[in-house]
Amino acid sequence: MSKFISWKNNWLSGNFQLFADGVQKGAITFGTWKSDAESMLEDKNYFFSNEGFWQSSTKVIDRKTNEVVAMITYDTWKSKAVISLKSGEQYEWKSTNLWRSQWTVSNYKDEHIMYSANSSSGALSSDTDNELLIIAGLFIKQIYNKQAIVLIACFMPIITMTALRR
């Protein structure tokens, strides 16, 4: 079954509103100073809890059962992540263009989600109804966005000082 979802996001907070047929069906809300997030899509509710320096992994907790249902591990240098479900299935999150405005979540067999975004909105097309995978794809994208912002903030003073010395 094919699913189409659009979203709007607040660039500053990173929060997402998810829509199907123009009706809000879900949201992803990030913590103010952390990259942890609460999410809801239709009847599913998940909490994403980051672990490790640079958020090297994320636990996904089902809010109804308080059970860890997935782990996400990041390969920052390759802009990839692996979503490992409790069932043992694994899915790869991968950016498909240089600007990271398009990305996919796939098991390379029968489930594939394609995302496309601009600065404050986007859409996804999915051949799976798995809400966890749909939300995880957006969550991972925001984690990479936040890492890029931190990296720029760290290097900007160095670049500025180098330019001023000349």
Rank of each mutant, 00 (worst) to 15 (best):
77 W>S: 07
165 R>V: 05
68 V>N: 03
108 Y>F: 10
104 T>D: 14
111 E>C: 03
13 S>F: 06
64 K>V: 01
66 N>M: 12
56 S>W: 08
84 S>H: 09
66 N>E: 10
39 S>L: 10
116 S>H: 07
21 D>L: 02
166 R>A: 11
35 S>C: 04
148 A>P: 03
28 I>D: 00
40 M>V: 04
72 I>T: 03
33 W>C: 01
84 S>T: 13
3 K>S: 04
113 I>P: 11
39 S>N: 07
48 F>D: 01
49 S>E: 06
4 F>N: 13
147 Q>C: 02
141 K>D: 15
107 N>I: 00
127 D>T: 05
93 W>P: 12
49 S>D: 05
27 A>E: 13
152 I>H: 10
93 W>C: 07
155 F>G: 01
103 W>P: 00
20 A>G: 05
76 T>N: 01
124 L>Q: 05
54 W>I: 08
50 N>L: 15
152 I>S: 06
26 G>I: 07
123 A>Q: 09
138 L>Q: 08
23 V>T: 12
142 Q>D: 09
135 I>N: 02
158 I>K: 05
145 N>A: 04
134 I>L: 15
14 G>L: 03
12 L>M: 14
47 F>L: 04
122 G>D: 06
46 Y>I: 02
96 T>P: 01
120 S>M: 11
18 L>C: 10
142 Q>Y: 12
120 S>N: 13
120 S>H: 13
144 Y>A: 02
71 M>P: 00
131 E>R: 08
102 Q>D: 04
143 I>L: 15
72 I>V: 14
113 I>L: 10
158 I>W: 01
139 F>Y: 09
19 F>C: 09
131 E>I: 00
127 D>F: 12
85 L>I: 10
127 D>P: 12
138 L>I: 07
13 S>W: 06
137 G>C: 07
105 V>R: 10
60 V>Y: 02
62 D>E: 14
94 K>N: 09
86 K>A: 15
33 W>L: 13
45 N>T: 13
24 Q>P: 12
41 L>F: 02
160 T>N: 06
81 A>S: 12
49 S>M: 04
72 I>A: 02
71 M>Y: 09
93 W>V: 04
46 Y>A: 01
26 G>Q: 09
142 Q>C: 11
165 R>N: 14
129 D>I: 14
35 S>D: 04
152 I>K: 11
124 L>P: 09
104 T>Y: 08
73 T>R: 14
84 S>L: 12
65 T>E: 02
85 L>F: 11
67 E>H: 03
151 L>Y: 11
105 V>H: 09
124 L>K: 13
22 G>N: 07
64 K>F: 03
134 I>Y: 13
85 L>Y: 08
40 M>Q: 09
10 N>V: 03
18 L>D: 03
163 A>Y: 06
141 K>I: 14
66 N>S: 12
166 R>I: 11
152 I>Y: 09
10 N>R: 12
47 F>K: 02
